[in-house]
Each structure stands twice: as structure tokens, then as C-alpha cells.
């Protein structure tokens, strides 16, 4: 079983974000992490090969710094990694998916795993787009996965419940929280990861030129939202405060 995991390096959630002189997001000095949903995907891939045998390859579209994220996945236990560096070009989800799919189409795979969403500027579409380009089925927001006999049985969250879907492999499955508990890389894992293969590719290496990855979405402006203002703290003991609160919600805020 060959499993590919699409992994994105994202800003740390605690990171303070500032805009640079051009009004764009300043990436300098921000600490980066593996997109948490992609950690679920890596963990799930490892669990499957531990049970049934096989190989796990992690793949990322990003700049050189994204190697750190790939190394972390290798330290968790993935076998090898591929980084496709598109340089500092503006990419949108269409571009990223095009690059990922093109790179993946040159590899062997039975299953492609990803996160259902990247927590930075993610929009829950890259993995689905990859499935569409590769012309294989996708199942999103999966909280339980069983793979056997060339099929995947996935439980996904739907409104007010869950549904269990079966797809033939290869397929794209995106992870939701609850799928598993990602392991921490062990000291030994971290040491081993340094020697594992990490292939660096350019756009040309995967057979794409700039015109093929021109974004469809154009960002017009970035701004920092105005901080929400702290409102009133309602004084008094529980009974008094609760009564006042109910009144304010009804009469002042008009929300109940």
C-alpha cells in the first residue's frame, strides 16, 4: 500500500500577524508548524502501513522552509518526502492543487490523505481539487477510516450526524479532528528523519510552467480587523447580574 500525504506548513496559531510595507502579510520571523489536520493525516497513514505494510510519502508545495514540516512527518515515521518549491509566486488553491496533482500523477499511490482544511489561509478545497484533477473520488471531513481489499470505508461528519461511505481506491480522504491522536516524534525518529530521502523539485521538474498555475483568485487588499471592544461588565451578585443581563439582551442589544 502506497500512501501519499499532502502536508502544508502553516503559521503557528499563536503567531502575531503584521502587514508589510506593501500591505501584504509579513512572513518574516513567524514560527511555522505542520497544519494540525495534516498531522492527523500523517498519523492515519502510519497506522495503516503499520498494520498492512506499505510506504508513506509526504508531499508539500512550499518554499524551502517547508522542509522543516516534512522532516517532522519523517520523524513521526513517514518514509520519504517531496517538496515542490514554486518560489515566491502568488498561488491560490487552484495553483497549489494543480502542482500537487501533477507531482502526484508521476508517483505510485493507492491512497492520498490530507487535512480537510489548512488553518492559516486555508479554505478546505485543495485536497478536493486534487481528487478532481486526478479523477479519483474524495471523501471529506473523515473521523474514522478503514482500508482493506482495495476499498476505503470512511465515516464523515454531516449535518446532525455521520455517514459511512465506501470508495474504491485510489481515493482522496481528508482528515477531521477525532480521526486519531497524532504521535510525537521520538528522539530516535528525529535522528532517523535526518537521513530519510527528501526530494526537492522545481515546477519544471514536475512538468509545469508558470502559465499553468496562474491563480484564479486575486487578492485585492489585506487588512487587520479592528479589535472587538470590551463591553460592559455587569456588576452585582448572580441574581442581580443575571436579571440585568436578560434585560440588556432584550432591550439594548435586541438579540433575544
Amino acid at each position: 500500500m502506497k500512501i501519499l500525504v499532502c502536508l502544508k506548513q502553516t503559521f503557528d496559531t499563536e503567531a502575531k500577524i503584521v502587514l508589510d510595507g506593501n500591505g501584504k502579510i509579513d512572513r518574516k520571523g513567524v514560527s511555522m508548524i505542520v497544519n494540525p489536520y495534516d498531522e492527523f493525516a500523517v498519523e492515519e497513514a502510519l497506522k495503516i502501513v503499520e498494520k498492512d505494510g506499505g510506504q508513506v510519502t509526504v508531499i508539500s508545495v512550499g518554499e524551502q522552509q517547508a522542509q522543516d514540516a516534512l522532516r517532522q512527518a519523517l520523524a513521526m515515521g513517514a518514509d520519504d518526502a517531496v517538496l515542490v518549491d514554486a518560489g515566491d509566486k502568488e498561488l491560490d488553491e487552484y495553483s497549489t492543487a494543480t502542482i500537487l496533482a501533477k507531482a502526484i500523477s508521476g508517483m505510485e499511490y493507492d491512497l492520498v490523505l490530507g487535512g480537510f482544511r489548512a488553518i492559516d489561509d486555508g479554505s478546505a478545497q485543495v485536497a478536493g481539487r486534487v481528487a478532481e484533477i486526478l479523477n479519483i473520488p474524495v471523501v471529506n471531513v473523515v473521523t474514522k477510516l478503514e482500508v482493506a481489499g482495495g476499498k476505503a470505508v470512511a465515516t464523515r461528519e454531516i449535518e446532525g450526524g455521520n455517514e459511512v461511505l465506501e470508495v474504491s481506491l485510489p481515493a482522496v480522504i481528508t482528515a477531521q479532528k477525532g480521526l486519531n491522536e497524532p504521535r510525537y516524534p521520538s528522539m530516535k525518529g528525529i535522528m532517523k528523519a535526518k537521513k530519510k530521502p527528501l526530494a526537492k523539485k522545481t515546477l519544471a521538474d514536475v512538468g509545469l510552467d508558470d502559465s499553468q498555475i496562474a491563480p484564479k483568485v486575486k487578492a485585492i487588499s489585506f487588512s487587520l480587523p479592528e479589535a472587538r471592544q470590551a463591553g460592559k461588565v455587569i456588576p452585582g451578585e448572580a441574581a442581580e447580574a443575571a436579571a440585568e443581563l436578560a434585560k440588556l439582551l432584550r432591550e439594548e442589544a435586541k438579540v433575544i
Binding site: 463591553g231 461588565v233 451578585e237 448572580a238 447580574a241 443575571a242 436579571a243 436578560a246 439582551l249
Partner: peptide
């Protein structure tokens, strides 16, 4: 970030809030 805040024990405040909301 709260528009309205109550500093207190939720186990005291929430049940009373329920009754007060019912009233208003």
C-alpha cells in the same frame, strides 16, 4: 471581546439567567 460580561460562578448565574430570560 464580550459585549456583556458577568463575573461569577456559572453554576449560580446560568440557571437564574434562564429564568430571567424566560420572563423578558
Amino acid at each position: 471581546v464580550a459585549d456583556y460580561g458577568v463575573v461569577g460562578d456559572l453554576f449560580d448565574v446560568v440557571p437564574i439567567l434562564k429564568e430571567e430570560v424566560k420572563k423578558v
